[in-house]
Design a protein around this nucleic acid. Structure first.
Lengths: 94, 94
DNA sequence: TATGTATTTAGAAAATTTTCTAAATACTAT
DNA sequence: ATAGTATTTAGAAAATTTTCTAAATACATA
């Protein structure tokens, strides 16, 4: 997976807003898009990046693709930050 | 400050590596640079971005500028992620 | 003051990212 | 099979980011 991809994904405001929407409930690509003033193609691009970063996953249903937050990857990022801080509640490599 | 700047700063591998170096001790710009295969000017550029994001601060001493990790901003980022996850240990806006 | 070391700033090239339009794919339902 | 809705893919333009070289600034000391 890699933190490079994950932090990169988190670095864009549109993508952070998308994650914020998905905090409450899963949403279809179209529902997500309706919150932004950009084309569906652009939203699809952002969803692809979030998906590659592991921050969301999709489930297909009828004609729709629903996206939902993957909290476990959010947790991994928090762990990285926690280790950076020196919060040594977890293993510290070498 | 803004999460945009902070996540953007965290999104680059060189900058994450710099933060990793600063985890143990404060280092001068030159000492930081010696760990990378890039010019001092480029390192300075990255340090500027980390500084603007609030992730590091500097202290000038003699001829040197020392950089150190600002753990409080790391904590703010963790809080943002924690709220995204729904970890409601802290206030939830509206 | 003159010289040397440490670091940043300026300007430009190369690479990457974000966005759009148009076309393609996928699935539904008539 | 046809038409309609939902979403993605392709290709290109615009914007941003990363890196370099060369020059500038800052400070220290001989």
């Amino acid at each position: 997976m890699g933190f490079a991809e994950t932090f990169k994904a988190l670095s864009d405001p549109v993508r952070r807003d998308i994650l914020g929407l998905l905090k409450k409930e899963r949403l279809s690509a179209g529902e997500i898009g309706s919150h932004f003033d950009m084309t569906g193609a652009t939203i699809s691009y952002h969803l692809g990046i979030l998906k590659k970063a592991g921050l969301v996953f999709e489930s297909r249903e009828k004609n729709f693709i629903y996206y939902q937050l993957n909290t476990s990857v959010v947790e991994e990022v928090m762990l990285w930050l926690s280790e950076l801080k020196g919060d040594d509640s977890d293993a510290e490599k070498e």
